[in-house]
Design a protein around this nucleic acid. Structure first.
Lengths: 259, 259
DNA sequence: ATCCGTGTTCGGCATAGTCGAACGTTATTC
DNA sequence: GAATAACGTTCGACTATGCCGAACACGGAT
């Protein structure tokens, strides 16, 4: 599957900038193995559209405001998000936990909805944050039903608890496929556990996942919380047009009669 | 200033998609005046990075989750945002109004921070929304001190009150430069008025603007609210390293002795 | 004042992108 | 139900386009 070289490079520049906040032209060129003048031409174009911005003092480059505009429109167009909003609210009240909804982006999970814990404390909005898929419950729920295999298997862990063994992860995913429920205990951040369930769409695929954020001190969660989560996932999936929940296993795991 | 053609086209595709949510390949090609196969090649690249997504049923294209990730990182890197956060909170409490902070993106204002009205009602988060610069107080505060002239002057109005006359707008901007305060009365959305002030950075430019959203029924706002707004803008500007507030008029309006 | 370290511009070569036409598939019509 | 139309997708050839190396300007260092 051929890609347009210059566009690919432009997107790589954005990705690099997204990882390291503010970089000089030379640094970007170095990380991508390109000539500075090549990068400059592309950045000039990104600059004209507001996708990157240049600090007037240090001359370094950052992401620009156009990225925010795009991200906001993405949220608006996401049917998943509007469908999940009402259910997440109720789920948070019932369980006393924060509720996250996420979608898969390559090997990561991007949070598209966040219902804060209903205890009135000020909490940072988490919409837009990215978590490695293999290290969170949302990610496991998504990977288990993803038609593409787990992208690059597991690179490296985030905490001591992170699962870095491909076969151990695969065993977990198999269980997720059977039960429809994925869990995670301090594998992404210490002190934080999670439990999640996939959200099926009309095509029978996992369009997203919804999950509870559970403090390690309250782990494992009550059975009633798990039931509420499962019910919410079922309800949202039905609204999305899915016929079954949990969704069927992806085709790659069903090689029965074709060879 | 030459731009890379294919990258420019890729960004145009994103912009079109951002305006019209979901489009077929042919529609995109039509709006850009390009061959469908050309657009397809670019979209395939955007697809590989998650910048666009394709619906599996209708085959149409939407923006993808990678846009959200970029937008979120942009917010994190924005010094303006973190500096404004504490002040906006106090300003909202003192005035009883919602507080918005925005930056300029070509001819529009992008909201980068939003402190809801402190009356406890559920309000939509407005971070990421885009408003034509000439139709809102934030935009006027920014345009008045923007080194580039008002991009394309005023195209067309949003409500009957929107200022569409370039000279009328320029007169307002001149007053903004003198007082440091910009206002808007139902020019963007009916029933909503605004008052805003620029935020100066170390370079003496308007890096952003902060403003109050005032219901039309409470317009004009009390003098104490205007004072509080001005004080907040001064404080944030000082934290950003600005020496003066309001910032000096842009160079394009100072052609004294050079020719 | 001089030297590095930047970001930026310019021009030639060849690669890499564009376009038109053909293909396969899916929805629509009679 | 068959034929048609519309759409996304693939392929190949032409040449316009973007890539790179070297030269230029600017700033802050020593």
């Amino acid at each position: 599957m051929p890609v347009i070289q210059s566009v690919d490079r432009a997107l790589r520049i954005l990705t690099v900038l997204q990882g390291s906040r503010r970089l000089s032209l030379g640094e970007i060129a170095g990380r991508l193995g390109l000539a500075p003048s090549t990068v400059h031409g592309i950045i000039r174009t990104l600059l004209a559209h507001g996708m990157v911005a240049q600090e007037r003092d240090s001359q370094r480059y950052r992401l620009g405001p156009a990225t925010l505009r795009l991200g906001n429109v993405y949220l608006d167009t996401l049917e998943l998000r509007s469908r999940v909003a009402t259910w997440a609210d109720e789920l948070a009240r019932r369980t006393g936990c924060a509720v996250r909804t996420g979608v898969l982006l390559l090997g990561d999970v991007v949070v598209v909805h966040h219902e804060p814990r209903p205890d009135g404390t000020r909490q940072m909005p988490e919409v837009g944050i990215v978590i490695p898929a293999h290290a969170c419950a949302l990610g496991k729920a998504l990977l288990a039903f993803d038609p593409a295999g787990l992208v690059d298997v597991t690179g490296r862990g985030m905490t001591g608890e992170t699962i870095t063994d491909p076969v151990a992860l695969d065993a977990q995913l198999d269980q997720v496929r059977r039960t429809g429920i994925a869990t995670e205990a301090e594998e992404a951040v210490l002190g934080e556990c999670g439990i999640a369930a996939p959200l099926a769409d009309a095509g029978g695929e996992a369009a997203g996942a919804i999950g509870l954020v559970v403090p390690a001190s309250e782990w494992p969660p009550a059975a009633s919380a798990v039931d509420a989560l499962r019910a919410a996932a079922r309800a949202v999936s039905r609204e999305l047009g899915a016929q079954a929940w949990p969704p069927p296993a992806p085709d790659r795991l069903r090689p029965p009669a074709s060879a």
